[in-house]
Amino acid sequence: MIALLCSVALADEPVPMTGYAGHPFTLARGEAVFGLFRPATVGLSDRVDVTVPGLATLVAPRVDAKVEVWSGERVGVAVRGAVGIPSGGLALLRSTATVLSTDPLQRVGFGAVVDLGVIGGVREGRLHSSLGVAVRAGGSTGSLQPQGVWWLDPMLAPLTEGPVVRVRWVADLRVTDRVQLTGDVAHQVFSGGPDTSVRGLALLAPSERVAFGLGWALALETMPGGVDTFGMPLLDLQVRLSKRSGS
């Protein structure tokens, strides 16, 4: 359960000292951000970001693109989409007899996952706030039956558990040039994992190129006995390849 939060958090966490991730606003052309766990994001142009996952690429390669379709002084809108091909990863995981079923009646075929969404955001002084909605769905030619592996990588989950709709609100508050508070609330339906997650992260930038993050995440899942709540710490180290940190 919490593993999902980890992967979600580390996959989508905002660019340090900016309010880009989860917002419609994109990196500048040539700018890039890498994290210890978070995916690598590169600005292809001033309006297009491309992201590839980090360690999860080994089992679930995917590409995520975000296009800023409209941007004013305070308001922006972007569309984003991702395509993943996790079937090779699923086969790999299954062969370990650890993650996926070894049931002889189930076969892993070629599979792909598509994730589409739209984001709207507002910049108001030191505060950036955005609301996004996304739909993930996957399909496979195999007979592998639904199994929640969301805790490993959210892009693996839809292939085996059906379409997932996710609504996410993100807010970033730049406290000083070196400190930023960021948080988000996400709610997803039709998922085998948590219904709701809440995260808070404090980012501290000792230099213009490096930021450390420390925070806490909370997940809530509705179960027959009531709502289960789980918390976990978040920790990250992020590096950017331009001098826009703290801007």
């Binding site: 359960m1 593993a3 360690l55 370990t96 007899a97 650890t98 993650v99 805790w151």
Partner: peptide, 26 residues
Amino acid sequence: PGVFSLRLVLVAALLAAGAACSPLPH
């Protein structure tokens, strides 16, 4: 004892990256 393969190490590393934050059982 089971098979301790490179694949298992890989998966274990991925699991650790995600699951180290929280217990899976309730």
